[in-house]
Each structure stands twice: as C-alpha cells, then as structure tokens.
C-alpha cells in the first residue's frame, strides 16, 4: 500500500497500510515511543483504503479492511482516519488473535497484580483504567486484556486510550497536553481523543500481572457494590470474550481458573472519584 507503518502493542505486532498519509502520520505520533521491533514480522494486517481510486481525493472516505473484515461496515471520513485505524486494529485482534483468551476489559496493575474491569461501552471501564493509570497504577489496557491460558496471568494490551466525550475534559485536566492526540469531533461514537499511556506503562507492556480482582463497573447510579458468583462471572466473561469458542479447552480452563481464584464484584458509581474509591477499597480487601 502507498503508506504504511508497524506498531507493537502488547503481544501483537501490527502492520497498517493506508491509501492516505494522514492516518499513518497520526499513528506514528501516538505510538512514537512504543518499543520498535524492526526484525519482527507483523502478526496482523490492517488496511485503510478508498473503495474507488478517485475517492482518495474526492470526499475521501476510509474503508477498514485487513486480515478480517466486517461486511457492510460503514466507511469514515478521512478526518477520522485515526479512529478508522484504531477500529481496524481492534477488529484484527478481536477476530484473529488465538494465543490468549481475549477479554473485552480494561486493566491496571499494582505490585505485579491486576484488576480487570469488564463492561459494555459507556460503563466507564476505559475512563477508570485511564484514571488509575494516572494515580500510581500501571495502565494495562483500556479495551482488551489477554489471559494467558498456561499461567492464568493477565497480559497488557496498552494501545492509546480512546477517551470519549466527558472523559476527554476530565483527563485533559490531569495530563500533559503532549500526551493527547488530535480531537476527533462528531464521530459515530461522539467526540474522541487519544491519550498516550505513561512511559512506564509502555515500557512494562510485556510484563504479566496475576489477576487479583474482577470488576463489572456501571456508571451512573449511586455507589454500590454487589458480589458476583463464579457462575455469573463465567457467563459474563464468555460474553465479553471474542475468541472464547475458538480456543476450545484452553479457553475453558483459563476462564474457570480466573473466576475461581479471583473475587468478582459489580460496582455502580455516580462519578469517577467514587468509582476510583470503590476500586481502591475492593483492591485493599482482595490483596490483603
């Protein structure tokens, strides 16, 4: 393809090709300080392309392709090329990765152990992870967390955090502006701005962390904690995994071990401060 770059996020190495320079340039800025690995071939391919040659210039719209494609996925305007790249990378991992059990969950680590937060979009799992990442925790990932079936450890997938809507202002007030990507307004998911994880989190991205706490956050209601049983946690996590069925017994073993060894809670919280307080409270109990 005309423009391309390669990026390693956690265990996955991507090559991203594009018909336009802009999305590649934006990725190279966001991922400039990620460890390079020039002799390693990519595991996954993402393609950003124009459906017809003239659409590279005329109302340019970015189609997302790669090793795996979603038929009928709508293209995005070129101004949202970075979002298209992010969606393409997520898609390849979600559909193609087989080494680990992939959970749609954010994660953060402290002292070699991790808290996993699984929830639908809007649950605040991404914002909570980003906030933890600025308050003494190592951010492991805001979207996917991988479980190694052999060891049961959680592995980080610390892509640039995708901040949405209110979370943008909340984080912008706390971090150096140099760590923020361009503001993408009016995307199908609202306003989006990417946050580069702290250098320590990127440097430690290959370090596994044993899961110690499993949370299912829900943003909006009064602060509350609800204990979740092993069976229910198991069901919720199979639903939060994109490759559970493809892994066979390895996935089953990883998930039964996870829900048996790690306490699980549903938490609801009215604002980020309350959410963080709940995480810290439950963490203190879990690791004591």
């Amino acid at each position: 393809m005309r423009h391309s770059t390669r990026i390693t996020v956690g265990p996955v190495r991507f090559r991203i090709g594009s018909d336009w320079r802009a999305p590649i340039a934006a990725l190279e800025t966001l991922y400039a300080d990620y460890p390079g690995d020039p002799v390693r071939p990519a595991d996954a391919t993402v393609r950003l392309f124009a459906a017809r040659p003239w659409r590279r210039w005329l109302r340019p719209s970015v189609h997302i392709g790669g090793d795996f494609i979603v038929p009928d996925a709508l293209p995005l305007p070129l101004s949202m090329g970075l979002l298209a790249a992010e969606m393409g990378m997520n898609l390849q991992v979600a559909l193609g990765w087989r080494r680990h059990l992939l959970l749609h969950a954010s994660a953060a680590a402290r002292d070699g152990r991790s808290v996993l937060m699984s929830g639908i979009s809007g649950s605040g799992k991404s914002t909570l992870a980003a906030l933890l990442g600025e308050s003494g925790w190592r951010l492991m990932g805001d979207e996917f967390t991988m479980i190694d079936p052999g060891s049961g450890d959680a592995l980080a997938f610390p892509r640039a955090v995708s901040l949405k809507n209110e979370a943008i202002g909340e984080m912008a007030a706390r971090v150096d502006a140099a760590r923020l990507g361009p503001l993408l307004s009016g995307t199908p998911k609202g306003d989006i701005q990417h946050l580069i994880p702290r250098p320590e989190a990127v440097a430690a991205m290959h370090e596994p962390a044993r899961p110690a706490l499993l949370l299912f956050p829900r943003f909006g209601d009064a602060a509350a904690i609800e204990r979740i049983g092993e069976g229910e946690a198991f069901v919720r996590l199979t639903e939060a995994s994109t490759n559970y069925t493809a892994l066979g017994e390895a996935g089953f073993g990883a998930l039964t071990r996870l829900v048996r060894t790690v306490p699980a809670f549903g938490i609801s919280y009215p604002d980020s401060a309350a959410g963080l307080a709940l995480v810290e409270e439950l963490w203190a109990e879990a690791v004591s």
Partner: peptide, 19 residues
C-alpha cells in the same frame, strides 16, 4: 522459522485443531 512466526503458526495449528 523465526520465533514470532513459529509462535503464530503454533497458535494457528491449535486453533485449527479446535475448528
């Protein structure tokens, strides 16, 4: 094979066996 390719192929064989 280069180690990353060997690892990816190992994954592919395991997933293939499940499929």
């Amino acid at each position: 094979l280069p180690a990353p390719v060997a690892a990816l192929f190992f994954d592919a064989r395991a997933a293939g066996a499940v499929a």
